[in-house]
Design a protein around this nucleic acid. Structure first.
Lengths: 209, 209, 209, 209
DNA sequence: TATGAATGAGTCTTCATTCAT
DNA sequence: TATGAATGAAGACTCATTCAT
């Protein structure tokens, strides 16, 4: 029923790519200023200083814009995480230090564009399931974390790694999200970050008890 | 700018109360079937087998219906959690057992109406901040958990209780949410539940190490 | 097409009459406070502290209420004018003095309920033509003024009396209306009233020149 | 509270201007045929043979259309009056002849679109006060008449000119309005027009007595 | 390729009126 | 007779999308 939400043209040419960026930037501004309900294609086009017609040259419909925004933002966050994971694979610090860096990376990822992130998570409808590309990317991060934890396997309790990975990722992700979106009063960012680390390390080291 | 979101009539009389229930039930059905974007007041009225006019006798506008749904659902979830907390305060089992029961309660709470929960969390715009009543209720649960943990203080590391409470609640809540909304393939519910418990217990007992 | 706009029951009984008055008073308040567009039957009923159903016992539809208001107000104004005419017929002062008193009467008539008058004249649709009763009443005033002027015929130029009457009435009525509804800045009420008198007297005495 | 009433686009381009004219013409037809209460935007759009959407491209809301109609009509009337005043300033006829021509101009002005005029005056709510532009235009006519009367000052009684102007304008305007909107039976237009002239001349020449 | 005027289906919301109690 | 909950037709307005230029 709902038409595709993937970009109409693969922006291979620099010109198109620039246009897409312009539109997404405009959409970000409109979205964060007015919220999803008041965001409409005409406003985005105007903000991008192009005509609606041109906008539809690059996106098949309104939701495709939001989807692209979502995707781009998620990609940027993932890139940051993956970069950190790559670094850790080189430096190979202690598990605790590694976890600390990972948590910090996640924190930074959430702070790339906190307003947009907030709106995308809370004010914007989900369009179908995250598409297969997203799923795949998500899986890559999952695999990389699994691999990464594998290096520390000797320190870990003999739980199946996938479960460990899943819980570690979700815990970090969720707690960071909660802290950034709705910072609890009376608890310092510092203490919260240490708390997350304690949570994850407590889990990873529980077997030693 | 946006008008009130609170119910138009305090449904004190049984009749009114029934009407409100009828409308919310219909709204739930429409919302979970079509999603927020395709949910409109006429459809809700039709589903409830009443006229739009009647609907507007009980709710000042469309969003007030969603808000009421949100509130009612959150209330039901909270009630279940608080009931469990009350029970635990009587039985006072071991910390581990208590946590296990608490996690199970949270799981049940999420399964009261998983579809509605999903839609409300992902497809529905936030209407301003959760209202003060919600905030207050949230705080009550927080306080009860704090108090509850207080009984086990001797077992816990000397961290400030509010931070501990915050992290425990958010962790349970987030992980349960993730598991219920998007169950990871290859990991059994059983294992996941144990994993959550391990996560929380690892955190709470980390000091003993 | 539009149903009748005359009161459903001739309020012969005191009880009914009182009810009608209550409703009209409430309608006046609502109308002057909110304007016609925002005046609705439910609001009037509420203001009158009765149920809508009861309201419809006394008026067949919304416009009948406005019509009745119009009629009652016009009647009160006419009564005041006619009273003055009757007085003048007794005292029989000079033409000039008579005209002065007549103008003052018209002024008072417009100030019986200036707000209601304003709304009725400017914000309220006309319902069909003024009904036959109105027409008749209007005619009576016209006749009385004609008769009254007849007494001063010797002073007047030999114009057909109906024309004279028409112009005198319309001139007084219109100027008083204009002054009351939208008082011109920089001109004192006193001066304006004298101006109207000068206008009418200039006209009536023009023949002597 | 009520949003603007001024046209959405300044119809600078010929195309837009034509569209605005089309809409106003359609609105005139609908308004005079059905009356204000039964005039709705969809009907106007249909009558204009355009879509509602297009209508809203040129007018921000329903009342803005009525307001524009009002304004355009008033402008046309004023133009006619002002043209006559300009002519009189050239020819400089006798006061009586001048007044006669002025009255006739006012008569013509009222007959530009008598039906529309009637509806606009009696069936249409006032939208706030006439806007500042209207006020200003009104003032211009007032000033022009004042200036015009100034040329005949020697013939006039020593009344302050503003008062004289106000009364002359209002009298002509009101009587012409009354005659055109609801012509009295038994009185010929000819006689009525002469009557108005006599009224105004009687007033202006009263001092000589 | 870009433009942006035009389209019109779709929604929310109001309120005069009815009628079962 | 009074009540007031229920009705649902009607209408203002938005905005995603198209297409002639």
């Amino acid at each position: 029923m709902k038409p595709t939400i993937t970009p109409r043209k693969q922006p291979k040419q620099a010109r198109s790519q620039a246009m897409v960026e312009t539109i997404l930037a405009a959409a970000t501004r409109v979205l964060t200023t007015r919220g999803y309900a008041r965001t409409n294609t005409n406003a985005v086009a105007e903000e991008a200083d192009i005509s609606v017609g041109s906008l539809y040259q690059y996106f098949p419909n309104k939701d495709a814009i939001i989807a692209a925004l979502h995707q781009r933002h998620a990609q940027q966050m993932r890139d940051l995480i993956r970069q950190t994971l790559a670094d850790l694979n080189h430096t190979r610090p202690s598990l605790k230090s590694a976890m600390q860096q990972l948590i910090q990376a996640w924190m930074q990822a959430h702070q790339l564009a906190p307003e947009l992130h907030h709106i995308l998570e809370s004010d914007t409808p989900v369009f179908a399931q995250p598409n297969s590309n997203d799923k795949a990317e998500e899986q890559i991060v999952f695999n990389e974390v699994t691999q990464f934890l594998h290096h520390y396997q000797s320190e870990l309790p003999p739980t199946a790694l996938p479960l460990t990975t899943y819980l570690v990722i979700k815990t970090i992700e969720s707690l960071v999200h909660a802290i950034v979106i709705d910072p609890p009063e009376g608890l310092s960012p510092q203490a919260l970050e240490e708390g997350i680390l304690a949570m994850v390390m407590g889990y990873l080291h529980r077997a030693n008890r």
